Simulated scan of single mutants.
Amino acid sequence: MSHPACTLDFPMLDDGPALFDWGLACSVGSGGVELDLIEAHKWFNLAALAGDERGAEWRADIAATLSRADIREAQRRARLVLQ
């Protein structure tokens, strides 16, 4: 389930560093954001799509810890954001 704290103050989709920061916050549970690796994968994926190379690297690291079902869910959530 998506934690609301990971979706507040939505960054612009072309702002790779801001998208990466959201992924980082969700991946470690910092800044009042709950730890949520599926959301972290989603944000890192969006950061990578926006050109932030760190997003692709961190997405791969997170993916190594997730089940296939969790990765599919993260990808589904990213697609929803892009619609």
Rank of each mutant, 00 (worst) to 15 (best):
T65C: 11
V33F: 07
M1V: 05
K42N: 04
P17S: 03
I71M: 08
E73V: 08
L24C: 07
L46H: 02
N45S: 13
R79M: 06
Q83N: 14
A63W: 06
C26N: 12
R79G: 07
G23H: 11
P4V: 13
G32L: 12
L13E: 03
E39K: 05
I62A: 01
L24F: 13
L19Y: 03
S2W: 03
P4W: 07
A48E: 11
W43T: 00
L37C: 05
F44I: 09
G51R: 02
C6V: 07
L49W: 07
A5R: 11
L46E: 04
C26W: 04
G23S: 09
W43Y: 07
H3L: 11
A78V: 03
E53S: 11
H41T: 03
S67T: 15
A64V: 04
P17R: 01
A48W: 07
M1D: 06
C26A: 15
R59H: 10
D15R: 03
N45C: 08
A78R: 13
L66K: 04
W58L: 14
A18M: 08
S2E: 14
A64C: 08
L80G: 12
P17A: 01
S2K: 13
E53A: 13
D21A: 15
T65D: 14
E73L: 15
M12C: 08
A48P: 02
W58H: 15
R54S: 08
A69G: 07
L49F: 06
A56K: 13
D52H: 15
N45W: 05
L19P: 01
G16R: 00
A74K: 06
L8T: 13
P17I: 01
A50H: 04
L35V: 09
S27L: 01
H3I: 03
T7C: 13
A69D: 15
I62D: 01
L37K: 13
F10D: 10
R68V: 14
D21T: 06
T7L: 15
W58C: 12
P11Y: 09
L46I: 07
A69K: 10
L46M: 06
G23F: 10
G23V: 10
L82E: 12
L35A: 04
V28T: 12
A60S: 14
L46F: 03
A40D: 01
S27E: 04
G55I: 09
G32I: 12
G23Q: 11
R76V: 02
E34H: 02
A25Y: 05
P4N: 09
N45L: 12
P4I: 11
G31N: 14
K42F: 02
D9R: 13
D52E: 15
E57P: 00
L80E: 15
R79E: 11
W22C: 12
G31F: 03
R77N: 10
